[in-house]
C-alpha cells in the first residue's frame, strides 16, 4: 500500500522470564497513513510497547521481531543504530505523559527549543533564539521571555506539554507518537493541549499515533482506532464507529464507564472469560 508511512506486520516484542520468553506485544499489524491513529487498551495491553518498538526504544532485554517494520520503505529492524537515532531525532518523534522526563533537566527549556530549531532548520544562534520565542508564543505561552529561561523542574504539566509541542514545531517530525500526553492534565488544560497538537499536525502534515487508556477521548480525537488487549489487536475500526462496536472487549470497556447522567445503580463488570 502506498500512502502508508509506517508499516508493521506481525510486530512482536518478547521479554525473557523464568517461564521462557513472554510476549508483551504479540503479532500486531497496522499501517499508519497521513492520519491520527489511536491505540487504546488497559494497562498491560502492550500499547506503549508497540509504539516503543516502532521507535526502536524497547528497553533491554526485550526483543523485537516482525515480518515487516518500516518507515517509508526503510526497514527499521535492519537499520544501523546511528541511522535510526538520526531518524528518531528528525522524522519520528515522541511525546510522553510526563514531559519532565523528556526535557533536559540542566538546560533552559528555551535553549532546548532553539537547539532544535538550529538542528532542523539550519538557522544561526540569534535567529534560532528568536524563532524559539516565536514558537513559545504560538503554543499560547503568555510570557515567552520568562518561560524561555525556565528549567524543566520549574514548569507545570500543562506548560511542559506546550513546550514539548513547541519542540515538535521546531523539529517538524513526519510521525509523532504521543503516549498518554494529556492523562496527567486537568480537563480544562487537556482541551487546549489537544487543540495545539491538532494545529501542529494539520499544519505540518504530521501523522499521529495517539496512545491512551481513555476510549471516549480517542473516539473524539482520532480518525482510526486499534483496540489492544493482552498484547494483541482485538479490533481496528474507524473512530466514529467505536461506540457501535460489537466486539465483547471494546463493548465491555465502554459499558463499564460511568456516565454523568447514569441511571444504572451498578456498573457491568467486564467478563474476561469470553475474550
Amino acid at each position: 500500500m502506498t500512502g502508508s508511512i509506517i508499516k508493521a506486520q506481525d510486530l512482536t516484542v518478547t521479554f525473557p522470564s523464568p517461564q521462557g520468553p513472554q510476549s508483551v506485544v504479540d503479532k500486531v499489524s497496522f499501517q499508519l497513513g497521513p492520519e491520527k491513529l489511536g491505540i487504546v487498551g488497559e494497562s498491560g495491553s502492550g500499547k506503549s510497547m508497540t509504539a516503543r518498538a516502532v521507535l526502536g526504544l524497547v528497553p533491554t532485554p526485550g526483543r523485537v521481531t516482525a515480518t515487516t517494520l518500516s518507515y517509508r520503505d526503510n526497514n527499521l529492524l535492519t537499520m544501523p543504530a546511528t541511522q535510526l537515532r538520526k531518524l528518531r531525532g528528525a522524522k519520528l518523534s515522541m511525546i510522553l505523559q510526563d514531559p519532565k522526563f523528556s526535557l533536559n533537566p540542566v538546560m533552559r527549556v528555551g535553549d532546548q527549543i532553539a537547539e532544535s530549531v538550529r538542528l532542523h532548520q539550519d538557522a544561526d544562534r540569534r535567529t534560532s533564539r528568536e524563532k524559539a520565542l516565536e514558537i513559545l508564543a504560538r503554543v499560547q505561552i503568555a510570557n515567552p521571555d520568562r518561560v524561555y529561561g525556565l528549567y524543566a523542574h520549574e514548569i507545570s504539566g500543562g506548560m511542559g506539554q506546550r513546550i514539548m509541542i513547541a519542540m515538535m514545531i521546531a523539529a517538524k517530525p513526519d510521525v509523532l507518537i504521543a503516549d498518554e500526553p494529556t492523562s496527567a492534565l486537568d480537563v480544562t488544560i487537556r482541551g487546549q493541549i489537544l487543540q495545539l497538537l491538532d494545529d501542529l499536525i494539520g499544519e505540518q502534515g504530521t501523522s499521529l499515533i495517539f496512545i491512551s487508556h481513555d476510549l471516549n477521548l480517542v473516539a473524539k480525537y482520532c480518525d482510526r482506532i486499534l483496540v489492544m488487549y493482552r498484547g494483541s489487536v482485538v479490533e481496528t475500526l474507524d473512530a466514529q464507529n467505536l461506540h457501535a462496536s460489537q466486539h465483547p472487549y471494546t463493548k465491555g470497556l465502554l459499558d463499564s464507564l460511568p456516565r454523568l447522567d447514569d441511571t444504572r445503580t451498578r456498573l457491568p463488570v467486564l467478563d474476561r472469560s469470553v475474550l
Partner: peptide, 14 residues
C-alpha cells in the same frame, strides 16, 4: 485503575 477495574471497585463501594 483501568476502567473495567474501576467499575468493580465503584460497585464495591456502593
Amino acid at each position: 485503575l483501568d476502567v473495567s477495574v474501576q467499575a468493580e471497585i465503584l460497585n464495591l463501594f456502593k
